[in-house]
Amino acid sequence: MERRASFRHWWIGIAFAVPQIVLIFTFFYWPAGQAVYWSMTLQQPWGGGNIWVGFDNFRQIFADALYWNSVALSTVFALFSTVLSMGLALMLAVFVDRELTGSKIYRVVMIWPYGIAAPALALAFRFIMAPEAGFLSFVNRLWPGLWDPGLDGTDAMISVIVAFSWKYVGYDFVFFLSALQGIPKALKEAAALDGAGWLRRLWDVQLPLLTPTVFFLLVIDITESFQDSFGIVDIMTSGGPARATELMVYKIYFDGFKGLDYSGAAAQSIILMGLIVALTVLQFRFIERRVHYK
């Protein structure tokens, strides 16, 4: 959409845009460029500038089993947490959308988890899922040694996935519900008059109209699973036990700031950036065209 009416003093326009441009240049474009530069160079241990190493950093990363471990873990994490939170959110939204008595309260309460900071909910879940005390500890009383996220990698992964999904069910729920409520009532009523039962209407009317939301949330949830997971992992498991929950962003943080390997961390960042850009482009280019719109 183009406006016809605009103001003549174009220099005022530029002046208004300048603060944003300066900010994104300083804190976005420069660092992003810097990351590319670092990923191609190696900092000398005693100062004296960076030496050019080309793609060596990348080669090193791709040869590193620990890096592939973090990629695999991130994939598992993204997959399970996205499916879990979207599935549950969709189910809840569909039922709340039926607007039976009490649905107003559910609508309010189910959004709350999204307002909680990842580290705060991580600490809460660390207690809830602690093996020796807390909400889930009775499991170990009944079957000793069954559950211990501090020692068992799988248990640790399960707990971070549950904590993350708990937050994002609330988020996905908001979007699903608003999409469901945007579906014209007449459509459902027409289907009902044609003799379609609730399941049929859900399957043939509501779900197809939700596909844009599904794909949108799919991309957002996967992207968030890369970034918002950091606080959860850091508080709940610190990447452990034995690197069983070392997701990609956590590894970047760890290598860059604990291991002081800026070049390696920068190269990992570049790969992650590429991944997220690819996902976004995929959303815009490919998926958006294929899904149903009203």
């Binding site: 605009s6 326009g13 970034q227």
Partner: peptide, 29 residues
């Protein structure tokens, strides 16, 4: 509300920042 040279370029420059959250470019930032 303004028409000035480079307006589209600025628009896209800002749009791109939507794609990369702070967490993934944390080290250089």
């Amino acid at each position: 509300f303004f028409r000035f040279p480079g307006r589209q370029a600025i628009f896209w420059a800002i749009f791109i920042t939507l794609m990369l959250p702070l967490e993934v470019r944390i080290v250089p930032t």
